[in-house]
Design a protein around this nucleic acid. Structure first.
Lengths: 265, 265
DNA sequence: CGGAACTTTGACACATATCAAAGTGTGTGG
DNA sequence: CCACACACTTTGATATGTGTCAAAGTTCCG
């Protein structure tokens, strides 16, 4: 009854395996830096944040596995045990929760360079499903190992905490806002949030492809798909954006910001 | 410009001060147990959860201060440094956040026996204001001391984590739901949530006083005060509840549950 | 008793949902 | 390569829930 989409494990690893070098060779570090360059985890990636030689040796314990997830497959499901974090190396995901009453809701989108699975840290199990919006690659970060390493490197611990709480605050704040926003405000916020996140990862802030369907945006924003479509059209008439199917061009980001902020009573 | 409502510190402490006894006297422990009896923190309160004698001695480091907060005064403000958790011993609070656009929103209510301030743990500063809905007493739990103690007692650490994540999940889930619920569903959920929480603390599940105004309920649920009022009236007509000003009597909790669950598509 | 704060109720407006149909793009099989 | 089916999007007409504005009612407190 459930189309059990299992993900396939890629043989490759992002770093040299343990048997190759017991000491960190300069080359290995360079390699890791390259790999992590476009990754939000670079703050966490040990060789990349000014650690001592001794700390780097500790960091050697961490080995990342690559995982390929096909469009529609799930990286994890709600209720499953939390074991790892996932860095999206390529592709994008949606997180979705099934509410008590059986309704499903999209709770977030994760794009290339972002980290997935933080929701499971506290409770020890995932609160939602994570499904790939397109064929994607992720870097599996076993949480046990991460914690072990972080325990011995306080600076890392702190980085980690900060990243986690920042994410929670962002999500929390967003959901809060939604309650009191009109459809136009929500859509404007959504577009600006995406724009900002693309820019932060080195992509264009003014032109990007939506990886998700109108219906998924609607679910995320607490609206109906027709409303998303109409709002996009209205924004286009107003010269704020240009919409071509999934391609969005932001023409007047200040205007979008004003849409978000107006009628603040 | 800001009516700087400072809270006054009560001289009393819930345990004997440090100079009175350097070793835990049996009486002191008994006293603490009594005090914590109706407190959600009892799971955290060391003498109350089956610790060894050695662990109890560690626990002696924690000293709780009582604080009286008058109606309308703030226990803490958004942006202020997070230093302590607060157990509501008596009274009730609302948490409110000021959104980017200047609008204010109630983000939660805390009643007698619940813990306040968890939102500050991750970021290190509070995300919202906490204002007393009535004259209230809280127990101040310095987080530093708590962490120190928890560090040496793994079981405590775990209890603590669990409590925190449970709260976050509850809040998160609630906010998620709100997005896709009608006014009636929201109000029904609100009433059932309150009922459950009162019951969990030993009060009646079917009859309780609302400590907050209609407007505050409305803000919390993302509605207008008139809608709250109308929905209460409608529920009363349907025989689900009886409303007398702030007093709510739940007549048919199953009916309320059905209101919450219906039209699940 | 009078006034302030809060609540209830009514009439109406407006935003968004719902229902319906046409339009567009995409992939598959002939 | 075309044609078809399918999934998704756009647009229109209408319905409905909730907000807005206004006024009366209630409780509380000086």
């Amino acid at each position: 009854m459930n189309n059990d989409n299992t993900v396939s494990i890629m043989p490759g690893r992002s770093r040299a395996p343990a048997d190759a070098a017991s000491l960190p060779a300069p080359g290995a570090i360079a390699h890791c830096r390259t790999v992590c360059a476009t990754c939000e985890l670079r703050e966490l990636c040990l060789p990349c944040c000014g650690l001592t030689r001794a700390e780097m040796e500790i960091a050697e314990r961490m080995v990342f596995t690559r995982l390929r997830v096909r469009r529609g497959d799930r990286l994890y499901r709600a209720g499953s045990r939390f074991t790892s974090l996932y860095a999206v190396r390529n592709g994008s995901f949606k997180s979705m929760a099934t509410l008590d009453n059986g309704r499903e809701q999209v709770t977030g989108f994760s794009m290339t360079g972002e980290v997935l699975g933080l929701d499971g840290i506290g409770p020890g199990q995932h609160a939602c499903d994570a499904a790939a919006l397109e064929d994607s690659d992720v870097c599996v970060i076993p949480f046990g190992g991460l914690q072990e390493v972080a325990h011995e490197i306080p600076a890392l611990q702190q980085h980690f905490r900060k990243m986690m709480s920042r994410e929670i605050v962002r999500q929390h704040g967003m959901m809060l806002q939604l309650g009191s926003m009109t459809a136009e405000e929500r859509v404007a916020m959504f577009l600006l949030d995406l724009s900002r996140r693309f820019a932060a990862r080195g992509y264009s802030a003014s032109e990007f492809n939506l990886r998700m369907k109108r219906e998924e945006i609607a679910s995320y924003l607490g609206l109906k798909l027709e409303t998303i479509s109409r709002t996009f059209s209205r924004f286009q008439e107003q010269g704020l954006i240009v919409v071509q199917q999934k391609l969005i061009r932001i023409r007047n980001s200040l205007g979008l910001l004003q849409v978000m902020g107006r009628e603040a009573d």
